[in-house]
Simulated scan of single mutants.
Amino acid sequence: MTDHQDVALDWMSGEDDEPHVPVDLRPDVPHPARMYDYYLGGKDNFPADREAAEQVVSLGPLVRISARANRSFLRRSVQYLAEQGITQFLDIGTGIPTAGNTHEVAQQVLPEARVAYVDNDPIVLVHGRALLTGSSTGIVNVVQGDLRDPKSVLSDPAVRAVIDFDRPVALLLYAVLHFIDEVDDPSGIVRTLLDALPSGSYLALSHGTADFLTPEEADRGPAVYRGATAQLTMRSKEQVARFFDGLELAEPGLVTAPLWRPDEDPQDTDRQVAIWAGVGRKP
């Protein structure tokens, strides 16, 4: 992406016949999705995103290692879910599209798999819709929505056009809940979403942690995000485990991302990848 001076970008807010809505991309304010894109080596970010991301990267190589490990967990867990026969995926906080998106992984196993991507960043919506145009076998949609308002996500017509909530759904919350402050009740958000899903549904989740960091290291990363559009709240294994209350955790349980059903012996240590990851089934 070039360094845009203009902050408005037209995007389609729903079906193709709806009017264009100008959206402020706020390029002068770092956004976690665009910073994450930068960690992965993407180009869909602005100078403010790159500057903030470089401040985090300067703390050590762990951020980029963790970003890659999280993306690898997405691939393995979506493949696992599709192999369990799950054909519907609700991916909230999807981030900017890159190689190995949810629909691509799921449809390699089940071509009929349906995916509703939900994100609150306009640039994610623009790039997601461009990527998906004419490229998908199953039904896929990219929807504007905010995880902090789960009821609106669940009731959105564009989500319901893809997801049948009477059949099992995989709820995907990859590296997004650590951008939800305690004041916004992240546990309540997850409960609201899971309560809307029938028996046999799954939750796949990854979450940043300071469990393996020194107190100084644990504070330096979140400090950078205090100037971004969403702040970073690291949580302990015990806190992350609460998101799975009432669910049956798939083996190997809640572990650091590289240890969740790895394709080969993991090379990265817990300290290098400070991300808890797990998949749970709703009885």
Rank of each mutant, 00 (worst) to 15 (best):
D17L: 06
V56N: 02
E54Y: 04
T192G: 00
V118Q: 08
S152L: 12
P157T: 01
G221P: 01
M1Q: 12
P262K: 01
A204H: 06
D185G: 04
T229G: 02
N141T: 13
A8E: 12
I65T: 12
R271V: 09
L232P: 00
L171F: 13
Q108L: 12
D211H: 04
P266E: 05
V57E: 01
M1W: 10
P258G: 11
G128F: 00
D37I: 02
P198H: 09
E217P: 08
G145K: 07
Q79K: 15
P27C: 02
E182S: 12
D219L: 14
A230G: 07
V109M: 00
E18N: 07
M1R: 12
E51V: 14
V273K: 02
V105P: 02
E104W: 11
G221N: 11
S155D: 13
T209W: 02
D6P: 10
L147S: 04
I123W: 07
P97G: 10
D181M: 15
E54A: 07
E83T: 15
P111G: 06
L254H: 08
Y202K: 11
S199F: 10
D156M: 02
F179H: 06
P283S: 14
I86A: 04
S77T: 15
I139H: 13
F212I: 03
S236H: 12
S77Q: 10
T192N: 03
S72V: 14
G42Y: 10
V224K: 03
D24K: 12
R242Q: 12
Q108T: 11
G134E: 04
T2R: 15
D268K: 10
Q84P: 08
S155A: 14
L194D: 01
G208W: 03
A230L: 11
P32C: 05
E217T: 10
D10E: 15
V143Q: 09
